[in-house]
Design a protein around this nucleic acid. Structure first.
Lengths: 287, 287
DNA sequence: AAGTGGTCTAGACCACTCT
DNA sequence: GAGTGGTCTAGACCACTTG
């Protein structure tokens, strides 16, 4: 029951009383109280024209759930508490929790499974391996082979540090790898990660792991990539790249620069892929 | 009031009684009847394992609204009836209509405006001009200049006809144009349209029109592009393209092949853009 | 049978827009 | 003030999963 003191809450305040007293009580006793009135007190106020403006209850609940995810309370692939339990815990109705989870499900943060529960999204699943890889073969659908070329630690150059919101010279990990299709090299990836977050990352760890790197990052380092921005260009292959991808120097390649974010819009990976699009293409859906 | 004869409706049936008798009645009288029981009768039945399987009420409502859009009952930019009116018209609750509209809004078919109503999405608006164009300048944000190069009618070649689900030799319109940024050519577009749907399309019409082609297509031909698939590759400029885009022959260009769809997943435009990404990039968001 | 998410309804109140 | 979409609650029933 959101029974905060009815003091005039500014419209901007994320005013949900997180985990009030009887949080882990027998459950349902807390929720169905002076419902409508209470939540009204929670949300309404004079319309001061402040900047972050107004946040409805369900969005505040969403924020609380994200905070738990960020804190690692529920790990990738695990189930979170049921809607009814969350509703009791936060002192709101099931419908409000449902709307919060709806949004998070639409953003691929959570996955609902009817009859089973709601689960933390993961890159490690069979069904959606390579969630962020949009490269498709012109024909067929074989999976890609992986070949690790390099994994080293270094001091962050200015250009990379800036994008990852680090300081120049901060510790950083650099990974280089190839993806193959039918034995032919198709993608050359360079990956930069904050050294702080990926302390034990090594060639061995990367080599012994099956599946996408992002699954490893979740399991070993608790870092979830939930969103990414890509900048795509056409470039000409330089000598080194041409040799690795077995194309002519000057051949056109797709350059895909990806900045990946974890919870709280925090950038945690920069990746530059060079794709040979002779027999593959980058697929995009517009809405 | 969904009072169909309680004969056993198969689960697959889009069973909404569209526009029953008292459709345009004083409004609210139709809706709040033997609600729960009736809609239960509408949806439930024995679980026969049929193919298109089960469709909830709100999705059937969505289908009905899409059918109206397709029929041109409400045009691009116009408002559709209020949620309460639609609820009365279809004999369901406002909540069900709301959920249908929620989905359509998420798919950019409709746009909600609080206090004003719900509107048919359009490509002709200031706020989201060039909804499908993902090209961004490295710096600045000037809008792109347009230069029409050609507009002619022809018989569909096999490759293009297949993608537009036409027969080889069917009438077709081909348009070629350039987009400029700061006076420099950046994009060369070739566009193919079914001649059947775009009867009066001409150089004059295209030239006198302001804003994106998609806005013109909506206003003049009633064709709404609601979704598109793109295949992106890196290619080398041939002689003709190099001249038009003022680059060297062999220079790497982004090739963006776009197939656009209208209601009912019907393909109605094929477009091939060649982008000079020297000072622009293709922006994509991954979730 | 019990627990979970999914759908549907109903009603209250809020925020925004226009007249 | 009237009308619109936006939020929140409550309760019913359905579909799916697991023991």
């Amino acid at each position: 029951m959101p029974n905060l003191p009815p003091s005039s809450l500014p419209r901007t305040a994320p005013a949900v009383a997180s985990e009030r007293s009887g949080a882990v009580l027998p459950a349902t006793s807390a929720a169905p109280a002076a419902a409508t009135g209470a939540s009204a007190a929670l949300l309404s106020s004079t319309s001061s024209a402040e900047s972050p403006s107004f946040s409805p209850l369900y969005r505040q609940i969403k924020g609380l759930i994200i905070a738990r995810l960020q804190a690692g309370e529920w790990k990738a692939g695990e189930s979170i508490p049921s809607e009814l339990e969350l509703a009791a815990r936060f002192g709101v109705s099931q419908g409000t929790v449902r709307k919060a989870i709806d949004e998070m499900s639409a953003e691929n943060l959570l996955v609902r499974r009817q009859g089973k529960g709601t689960f933390v999204a993961t890159h490690a699943e069979q069904k959606q391996q390579y969630r962020f890889l949009r490269l498709m073969p012109d024909e067929g659908s074989e999976s890609l082979g992986r070949q690790l070329l390099d994994c080293r630690r270094l001091r962050a150059p200015a250009a990379i540090a800036r994008q990852l919101q680090l300081r120049t010279g901060d510790p950083m990990v650099e990974v280089r790898r190839l993806l193959h299709s039918k034995g032919e090299p198709v993608v050359l990836d360079d990956i930069w990660l904050p050294g702080q977050l990926f302390k034990g990352l090594s060639t061995e760890l990367l080599n012994q792991h099956r599946g996408p790197f992002y699954g490893l990052f979740e399991a070993e380092f608790g870092v979830h990539m939930i969103r990414a921005q890509e900048k795509i260009r056409a470039v000409a292959a330089d000598a080194e790249t041409a040799a690795l991808l077995q194309v002519e120097v000057g051949a056109p390649l797709l350059s895909v620069e990806r900045l990946s974010f974890t919870y709280g819009d925090k950038p945690v990976e920069l990746r530059r892929g060079l794709y040979n699009t002779a027999s593959h293409f980058y697929r995009n859906e517009l809405n």
